[in-house]
């Protein structure tokens, strides 16, 4: 494992820690899209089914379990925690799951490395991860209000993708057998969407709306 990959994973992990910290300390999930969190949970569940049939390393197994547990934890807070659930922007967070899930499922059935259940589910998770941020992007555009931790959450999620691209470039040159065109294409799309997200984040930052935590 190279340093770009490790830094990318740590950035991904840190973004999740930030979101849990935000929810736990402020007892609020204002500005967070439950739709995006649900889609990420679906991404982790469909991708990490391989926990049952393949083993790569202790590191991978532990990280997969952390990602699964934390995504369910975030959803639990947003849905069931007495105080937190009241701060959820239900009226604004109206993005429909199927708009993303159905096209990703169809694409995974058509464009994949192997037409098997596990492979199609894995490919579906790759495609869905690329676009799962969209409900959050729409919510941010609507509310035009982003606090520090939400902004940092997005920053570290974007950094995770950017670092993974560096990791792929590194692996392209150092591992002749490593060629993951589907993953790379989806990763580029995903990073592009985060660039857009950053643009909206900076715009609201410039407008000086709700940026400092009390």
């Amino acid at each position: 494992m190279n340093l770009f990959r490790l830094a990318g994973d740590m950035s991904h992990l840190f973004s999740i820690v930030l979101i849990l910290l935000k929810i736990y300390t402020s007892k609020s999930c204002a500005g967070l899209s439950m739709k995006t969190q649900e889609l990420y949970t679906l991404v982790f569940v469909t991708r990490y089914l391989d926990l049952f049939y393949s083993y790569v390393s202790l590191y991978n197994t532990v990280m997969k379990l952390i990602f699964l547990a934390s995504s369910f934890g975030i959803l639990w807070y947003m849905r069931y925690h007495k105080q937190v659930k009241q701060t959820y922007d239900r009226e604004q967070d109206t993005f429909r799951h199927y708009i993303l899930v159905v096209p990703c499922a169809v694409l995974a059935l058509i464009v994949n490395n192997e037409l098997s259940v596990t492979e199609v589910l894995w490919t579906f998770s790759i495609y869905l991860e690329a676009v799962a941020i969209l409900p959050q992007l729409v919510l941010l555009q609507r509310t035009k209000n982003v606090d520090n931790l939400t902004g940092q959450y997005i920053f570290f999620l974007g950094a995770y993708r950017a670092l993974y691209i560096l990791n792929w470039i590194y692996r392209y040159w150092t591992e002749p057998k490593y060629r993951q065109y589907l993953v790379w294409a989806a990763g580029l799309v995903q990073t592009g969407l985060y660039a857009d997200f950053f643009y909206y984040y900076l715009k609201s930052w410039q407008a000086g709306e709700k940026l400092r935590l009390p």
Binding site: R5, D9, H12, D50, S54, V56, S57, N60, M63, K64, F67, N113, E114, S116, E119, W122, Y164, N167, K177, Y178, R179, Q180, V183
Partner: peptide, 10 residues
């Protein structure tokens, strides 16, 4: 198999 390549990422 080609499908197992790259599955070492998260």
């Amino acid at each position: 198999s080609p499908s197992s390549e790259g599955k070492d990422e998260l």
